[in-house]
């Protein structure tokens, strides 16, 4: 029973990280119908930035809390800046071309960013310091849940609530929903579509960076390739829930996290990634619209 509980909590933690990344995919897809392949790399850059700032700030003698806050902040700012720039360079000029071109451009961007980090930093796995302090009240339950898992769950839920609020109740959120429904119509009623798209990329990247910091400090190591696998898995989560739907992405991510956790816990950990990809293939075959997605008519 305890093992089962451990797997459930582990799965939820994993799932909430995937959710943070999956939101970026689903928001971008909702608005410009593009699979942003470079999104996983944005997340990886977030983790690297956090690692770099942590080391520098620690050496400069800041205290622990200040290091955590500043490093996470730096990761969020830099990832957002990268997301914004990637959109301007690789996607904006291609907005009116066929579907294949932006997709190839996105893959190119992903490969470019991976190798940029590989060349500028290192190909080795770097140990990531555990930024999250041990909470006192968690001690008796240590064997089931760690404090970093609790923090991940809390941060993720807070981020989700804020995001939902932003999209449902603010002016920007309204503009985003309008753009997602019909870009040309939104433009006609005075929505600055370019700005909305940029904001979407920035928000998605910021969430990914948050996910990057949390998981890197939970797992304890990063390298330039972590973004690629995490990206595919987050995309799986987004598709699982129904791409374009924000609650869907969260639900899909949690389902994926639990599936992986149980599969590795009860079957074999060698095939961890195979389960995720296998799940993706199965969903696309049997329910391509996802759990919460609706089948939309194709526009002619």
């Amino acid at each position: 029973m305890e093992y089962f509980l451990e797997l459930v909590l582990g799965g939820l933690t994993r799932g909430s990280i995937y959710a943070l990344i999956a939101l970026g995919y689903t928001m971008v897809y909702g608005i410009i119908e593009l699979i942003n392949f470079a999104h996983g790399e944005i997340y990886m850059i977030g983790a690297f930035t956090a690692l770099i700032f942590t080391s520098v700030l620690t050496l400069l003698g800041f205290n622990e809390i200040a290091v955590i806050v500043l490093a996470s902040l730096a990761a969020v700012i830099y990832s957002s800046a990268y997301g914004y720039t990637v959109e301007k360079i690789a996607y904006k000029p291609l907005r009116h071309t066929s579907r294949l071109s932006p997709l190839i451009s996105a893959i190119g961007m992903s490969i470019f960013l991976q190798n940029y980090v590989l060349l500028a930093q290192t190909s080795d796995f770097l140990p990531f310091p555990n930024l999250i302090p041990e909470f006192e009240f968690i001690k008796p339950y240590r064997h089931i849940i760690s404090s970093s898992e609790i923090l991940i769950l809390i941060t993720t839920s807070t981020a989700m609530i804020l995001l939902t609020f932003l999209i449902k109740f603010t002016r920007t959120g309204k503009a985003m929903r309008a753009t997602a429904q019909d870009r040309n119509m939104a433009m006609l009623v005075g929505v600055n579509v370019d700005r909305v798209i940029s904001i979407t990329f920035v928000i998605g990247s910021a969430l990914a960076a948050l996910g990057g910091v949390l998981i890197a400090s939970h797992v304890g190591q990063i390298n330039f390739y972590v973004g690629f696998i995490a990206g595919i898995k987050a995309f799986t989560a987004a598709v699982l829930g129904g791409i374009g739907s924000i609650p869907g992405a969260v639900l899909g991510a949690l389902v994926l996290g639990l599936t992986e956790s149980f599969a590795t816990g009860y079957i074999s950990s060698d095939y961890e990634d195979v389960f995720a990809f296998g799940l993706l293939v199965l969903i696309l075959i049997f329910k391509p619209a996802g759990i919460l997605g609706r089948v939309t008519d194709r526009k002619l």
Binding site: L103, I232, F277
Partner: peptide, 25 residues
């Protein structure tokens, strides 16, 4: 056979996943 009925961009990600599955296996 299963994936070609889908939208083009799903195909990209499924083939990507499939390639990784083969390698991991």
């Amino acid at each position: 056979f299963p994936v070609l009925r889908l939208r083009g961009d799903y195909l990209a990600i499924v083939t990507l996943g499939f390639g990784e599955i083969i390698r991991l296996v």
